[in-house]
């Protein structure tokens, strides 16, 4: 990863407070032209759309064997782009393909524009034009909308360090890894520094370790995890699990990472898993297709 997070454009321009983010979005939504569009073309809530886009992006990435890092960057680009641009004025499939195309360049694994357009057309033949200059134009819009601030810092790097610090076992590593991947579906990449997300992932992995299965089924245990950090276990003889949690809490206390930020991350993930229950791929697809076709955004 290039450059230093503390001096990064990500920290300076793309990390919002909750209120700041809400304000940016409100300003966007209250543009008269957008108000009309929003009323005419209802869409599922943002996180459900994110899940849908993620599934599409992952399909495209898989066809081109794109690295995880670039896929993550593409997701953050989409998140950033749509804070400033109303989705109903864009063709999300084009934005998605372009985000991946640009992310690949950025992560030094460039793909030829024709390959990206070709693969995207295989997946969404009705919605992507074969004209590569459309993607080129969208790339320009993306860069310009993001103010050319293109380097994205991800939690993976910090996570690799933490993984050693807390000697995570394989099972915990994959749990943490999926928490990191899931955080891209929320606003967290726009709200918290990557190392906070990484430590959150470690915490979840350590707390949830005894239970099996994926994170989605663990909203309840996550609640427990939260109360654990909020109220450290008292002087009962600690089990090994508790001892590690204790180590984490001590580590947190000594680090500059704020507990509130970690709690917030956990909470965002819990509510993501709640919302996920109501995810309906078909509905997302239909609602997106509707405005894209009605407004001729695929042309």
């Amino acid at each position: 990863m290039a450059a230093n997070y503390w001096e990064s454009s990500q920290r300076k321009y793309w990390t919002f407070s909750k209120k700041g983010l809400a304000d940016v979005r409100r300003a966007q939504e209250s543009e008269p032209a957008n108000k009309q569009l929003i009323a005419t073309y209802p869409l599922p809530e943002r996180r459900l759309l994110n899940i849908y886009f993620h599934l599409q992006l992952a399909k495209l990435a898989k066809r081109m064997s794109v690295r995880q890092q670039a896929l993550a960057t593409a997701q953050v680009y989409m998140r950033r782009y749509y804070t400033k641009v109303e989705i109903r004025t864009t063709n999300p499939y084009l934005v998605l393909a372009t985000s991946l195309y640009l992310a690949c360049k950025m992560e030094e694994c460039p793909q030829h524009i024709r390959i990206v357009v070709g693969e995207a057309r295989q997946l969404w033949p009705e919605l992507i034009s074969s004209d590569t200059s459309k993607l080129g134009e969208c790339e320009f819009n993306l860069i310009s909308t993001m103010n050319s601030q293109l380097i994205v810092h991800h939690p993976y790097r910090s996570f690799i360090d933490l993984q050693t610090t807390f000697s995570l076992v394989q099972e915990e590593v994959s749990l943490a890894w999926s928490a990191i991947n899931d955080h891209f579906l929320t606003d967290l990449p726009l709200l918290h520094p990557p190392h906070v997300v990484a430590i959150t992932a470690v915490l979840l992995a350590v707390v949830l370790k005894p239970t099996q299965g994926n994170l989605q089924s663990h909203a309840q245990s996550l609640q427990t995890a939260m109360s654990t950090i909020a109220v450290p276990p008292s002087n009962t003889a600690p089990t090994t699990a508790q001892a590690r949690i204790q180590k984490l809490i001590t580590w947190l206390a000594e680090s500059s990472v704020s507990i509130e930020a970690v709690v917030d991350c956990v909470q965002e993930l819990i509510s993501l898993y709640d919302v996920w229950e109501s995810f309906n791929e078909k509905q997302c697809k239909e609602q997106i297709t509707r405005f894209v076709k009605a407004l001729a955004l695929d042309k």
Binding site: A2, A3, E7, Y101, L102, L135, F140, S148
Partner: peptide
Amino acid sequence: KLNAEYKDGLSMDAIREVKFLQELS
């Protein structure tokens, strides 16, 4: 300069220049 009506996207040179100068102060 954008090459031929975007057909090839923005050149790597331009992307790299912008990318790093944004971060390195």
